[in-house]
């Protein structure tokens, strides 16, 4: 087996208040350790902000600015410019937001920062809903998933943020999963070494929000990757697509079966979702072949 290979230098501390078994804390551990000590963080209201904080305590060793929900990328851009004015050009600015702060409320400031190609590393912890406020749908919630505000299942598709960002032609976009920690580490390292706007989207199976067992976040994330729902990809300069896997190793049903938010689906619904995954997969393979 491939051993997990990164060094935990203690940049993320025990005692944080993420739910037991939360994959977001797992991902934060990899990201904060890989980003290292020469970094300043920005975080906006989200699970991440709660996990990092709880005044007067912090679970991160680097300083974090807690900004407003709509201003994640703008705040990070401001911090970067301030650092540059101080002569600290090489200090990484790490911006952490959820899907609500990225796909919905912060999309305008994200788009603006992307258009200006601000030199920030923006990480979106995508748990496909407003899970920190009780589990309402966001524009990242996938079709048919139930949330507190879509009790019969969401009727519209998940917003394709990757293609929105690719249209801005920013240097680097990547998707990572808490089931593939070496891949996550490598992509954070790569992004950290690049100048300009970098966005990494982390899929976070939310234990209460998705109805996943306490010990199954990693398994669920792995099935998301291996069923092709959430392929691990990189997009450079908005044009060059790279997919880490050659094939889908699991039917979508294996992934859906881990989650209560899809429990209401009938066979036809599942077949429709599978067809959608297949179509998206073909489209992605086509983009990667270009």
């Amino acid at each position: 087996m491939e051993k997990i290979d990164y060094t935990d230098t203690g940049q993320f501390c025990s005692g944080h208040v993420a739910c037991a078994g939360c994959a977001e804390a797992l991902a934060m551990r990899v990201i904060l350790n890989e980003v290292g000590t020469d970094a300043v963080g920005v975080v906006v209201p989200s699970c991440t902000a709660v996990i990092l904080g709880g005044h007067p305590m912090s679970s991160a060793k680097i300083p974090f600015l807690h900004g407003t929900l709509e201003s994640a990328a703008a705040s990070a851009a401001g911090v970067k410019r301030a650092l540059r004015a101080m002569g600290r050009d090489d200090t990484t600015v790490l911006c952490l937001a959820g899907d609500g702060g990225t796909y919905d409320i912060g999309l305008q400031s994200l788009s603006s920062a992307a258009e200006r190609n601000e030199d920030i590393l923006y990480v979106c912890f995508d748990n496909e809903g407003y899970m920190n406020t009780g589990g309402q749908k966001s524009s990242s919630t996938p079709k048919s998933a139930t949330t507190g505000s879509t009790p019969l299942g969401k009727t519209t598709r998940k917003k394709n943020l990757i293609e929105i960002l690719a249209a801005h032609r920013i240097p680097y976009i990547a998707t990572v999963s808490p089931s593939h920690l070496n891949d996550m580490k490598a992509k954070v390292k790569k992004a950290k070494g690049m100048r300009g706007m970098k966005v990494i989207i982390v899929l976070i199976p939310c234990l209460p929000g998705w109805g996943v067992a306490d010990n199954a976040a990693v398994k669920t994330a792995r099935l998301a990757v291996e069923s092709g729902v959430f392929p691990l990809i990189e997009v450079e300069d908005g044009l060059t697509y790279k997919v880490a896997q050659d094939e889908k190793k699991h039917p979508l049903d294996d992934y859906l079966a881990q989650q209560k938010r899809y429990r209401h689906l009938k066979d036809d619904d599942r077949a429709e979702l599978q067809a959608d995954v297949d179509a998206s997969w073909s489209r992605l393979i086509g983009l990667a072949a270009m």
């Binding site: 501390c13 709880g54 007067p56 305590m57």
Partner: peptide, 18 residues
């Protein structure tokens, strides 16, 4: 400043949740 967090989360013993 009291605005700054100045303690590590390690002061919070989450083992009590278990």
């Amino acid at each position: 400043s009291p605005l700054w967090t100045h303690l590590s989360s390690e002061n919070r013993l989450t083992g009590t949740w278990r």
